[in-house]
Amino acid sequence: MKSHTVRRWSFVHTWSSLICTLFLLMLALTGLPLIFHHEIDHALGDTPAYRDMPAGTPHLNLQRLVEAAEAYRPGEVMQYFGWDEDEPDGVMAITAATAGTEPNLSHTFALDARTGEALPMPSANGGFMMVMLRLHVDLYAELPGKLLLAFMGLLFVVAIVSGTVLYAPFMRKLGFASVRVDKSPRTRWLDLHNLIGIVTLTWVLVVGITGVISACADLLISSWRNDALVSMIAPYRDAPPLTGRAPADELVTIAKAATPGMTPDFIAFPGTRFSSEHHYAVFMKGSTHLTSHLWTPVLIDARTLQITAVIARPWYMDALAMSQPLHFGDYGGLPMKILWAALDVLTIIVLGSGLYLWWVKRRARRASAQVTA
């Protein structure tokens, strides 16, 4: 590689890395506990404590559970209702002052599906894990924070690609995985920085790209609403406001009939950003480990319970649905989480060593300039 080309790539790598490194260090540090959020919640006693009851105790119907949720939070309305993957007798409810209240002002809790008893979920509404999540997702700045982190993620991808380009000629001079332990600390750290960087290359690319996609979630959901959803609810554009809705009892049965072989994941109630002012939206998912992250929304008229549409998933919503669990290593159970955590720690070392190398080089240049002067 020609020297001027190396200088260009080195410039790109240095400044793309420097601009995003502090943000990436924050994301790596906050992401570490988020990888184990289920395990941490359990250890802290923040998981719902379902009572022991005889096996096979029947569940209340859906409308009874909705009423129990709204009774637990007087003055609030249902936004979303979902099923707990880890507890067959548990369901999740999200309520807020209005159906359109933004997510950070909503309240999440569990319900015992057999009794309708409400069970608090402290970590879903505040505390250490919520602080980690908000810092990781939006820096407590909502959409501007998400877009800033998306931009930092793009810079991170540029830094990874430029670093790989620079490492190619470096490998021709030294054997792979060589660390020159007999050289100066800066040289040893440079070798370690390059080695760990190339070993974690695929993982950091995956996490970086999925992080950018996840950070753009609000924009993708808005695009979905303005594209697929708006066209489906066009006949309701001039309909009078919904003054009452049909009971939710049959929603799952109706949605299952429209999507054979799929199971319900969550229900968006009328007025939320995943539905319309006149519809329930039942989000169905596949039965395999992969397709369980892919949603097919079934729009059901909230007054008549007639199916309005089964909405085809646009590619960008599939990308969003699959990127979020992949970002945190939620596809492969505890072994994959441990692998993700180890790679996260190695990434922290790469980021920290990059800052160290830049600072040492900068200090050496200053010293050289002073001697010359």
Results as ranks from 00 to 15, higher is better:
K337G: 06
K173N: 12
M129H: 07
D52V: 13
R186E: 01
D138Y: 05
A373P: 01
V360I: 09
T291C: 05
W315K: 10
A321T: 12
V181S: 12
A281Y: 04
V298Y: 04
R313K: 15
I35K: 03
W15M: 07
F109N: 07
F36R: 00
P185D: 07
G244S: 15
F269T: 04
W224P: 13
F274M: 14
M1N: 04
M132S: 05
G175C: 03
K337S: 03
R237L: 13
R303N: 14
L334C: 05
V199S: 00
T47A: 11
K256W: 01
A69P: 01
I94A: 07
V6I: 15
S368L: 10
G261P: 12
S287M: 13
A141V: 10
D84P: 04
P120V: 15
H278V: 06
A341I: 04
L351P: 00
L174K: 13
M152K: 02
R51Y: 03
V282N: 05
S292T: 15
K146A: 11
G286H: 06
P247D: 08
Y316V: 13
T308W: 05
R188L: 13
V131A: 14
H4S: 15
F170G: 03
G208Y: 00
S17D: 10
V345C: 09
N61V: 09
P325M: 01
P247T: 07
M132G: 02
K2I: 06
W9M: 10
V230Y: 06
K285Q: 14
H293K: 07
P54G: 03
G175Q: 02
R366M: 07
T253A: 10
P54E: 14
M132I: 04
V360K: 07
L174D: 09
V212G: 05
A367P: 06
A234S: 09
P335R: 00
H42S: 13
H107N: 12
R51M: 07
E39V: 08
F274A: 06
P264C: 08
G75L: 05
W83E: 08
